[in-house]
């Protein structure tokens, strides 16, 4: 259990949010031209990092907006929060 600093509402309990998985997976520009391997890569393969991971969250029981979080998955500590479309921090 941890707190998430929603960029729109401020700090709230994690249970107010829905995790949206790995961030920055770009939807293919030309889906019709993708091979089966590329589809598998896009749809199913995940980094599933133990350590610092970039991910999407939705404040589903609050403002219902999506944003990005940088979190260490080994101890659930959040390193940074940034809005959709913003450049991820280094």
């Amino acid at each position: 259990m941890f707190l998430i600093n929603c960029p729109f509402c401020g700090e709230r309990e994690q249970s107010e949010f829905k995790a949206g998985g790995e961030a920055h997976i770009v939807r293919p520009k030309q889906p019709t031209e993708l091979s089966d391997d590329e589809w598998a890569e896009y749809l199913f393969m995940r980094k599933n990092i133990k350590g610092v991971q970039f991910e999407r969250w939705n404040h589903v029981h609050g403002c219902r907006k999506w944003f990005n979080v940088v979190r260490d998955t080994s101890n659930d500590q959040i390193k940074a929060v940034y809005k959709m479309g913003e450049k991820p921090p280094n």
Partner: peptide, 8 residues
């Protein structure tokens, strides 16, 4: 629903 290795 989030990825975590923290065993909590």
């Amino acid at each position: 629903d989030y990825v975590s290795y923290s065993q909590k």
